[in-house]
Design a protein around this nucleic acid. Structure first.
Lengths: 138, 138
DNA sequence: AAGCATATCCGCAGGACTTGCTAGTTCGCA
DNA sequence: TGCGAACTAGCAAGTCCTGCGGATATGCTT
């Protein structure tokens, strides 16, 4: 995701308006590698701007996702997580504490795949489940 | 997933009762590679047994999943899909028609992974998105 | 074959997450 | 500064799933 200042320009360039609510969300998301949910962001936003609506949070996240500034990721059931890292990467989910970390996988393109005959893949996503470094220390 | 007859025994062995509703679902799921949702199964079940409850479908799917006879898979948002194939495999999702096919990936264990330091993985799942053989023929 | 304890069935209410809708407000260009 | 479009807030509703409770069926027993 680009910087808040760049997003301001990008929004205006699309005819979208730049409101304080949106700028706050730009800030909360920038350089954020926590993979927050809408609810998490709403809580953080509320503490800085009481009265902001959950609806507005969802709306802004949807806009950012449509602009390709954000990836929306879901892990099993449960709420969607938003990822400002739009580079090609994957995720590791800690089943104990729920932490989500970015993972870069090399050689995924050269996997021997059986069953994909005729299938034209656009993307592949890999999700690891397990215990993170902190939780693995039994 | 094991055969309907074996599931009957397995259910009884656990103190679970074998009802006509459950037996119907055993049959609908056996050798089913369509990755149905609860709703899909409910529709099929209803045509054979009008009056069966959606609640019962969910209950039976939950039981089978708990017994390890079924895998529950979700792709992005949307309903869960149930997979009687519990072997180690992955999935390819057609974004056009929604078809889901099983995929076997060789060498996934030897991927060069960056960012997994200290993480103890229990499982990995790979999902390909793209166009299936039929839909790829533009 | 009949009885009994208990698991199951069904339908509805409710919960989690997300989106639609509307009135009133704010933004941004001229 | 002023105007029209876009936005915000709040609530209603939609989707998917689970909890609850009374009536019923299953499977063991006698």
């Amino acid at each position: 995701m680009r910087s808040p200042a760049q997003l301001v320009d990008a929004f205006r360039a699309q005819g979208l308006k730049v409101t304080p609510q949106r700028q706050l969300l730009f800030r909360l998301l920038h350089d954020n590698d926590r993979h927050p949910t809408a609810d998490t962001l709403y809580a953080q936003a509320t503490s800085e701007m009481p009265g902001i609506s959950l609806r507005t949070v969802y709306q802004t996240l949807t806009d950012l996702t449509a602009m390709g500034e954000l990836d929306q990721v879901t892990f099993g059931s449960g709420p969607a997580h938003f990822d400002p890292n739009v580079a090609d990467h994957h995720h590791a989910v800690c089943d104990v504490c729920g932490a989500i970390t970015d993972v870069y996988v090399d050689g995924a393109d050269q996997l021997a795949i059986d069953g994909l005959a005729g299938f034209r893949p656009d993307s592949a996503s890999i999700v690891f489940h397990g215990s993170c470094a902190s939780c693995a220390r039994t």
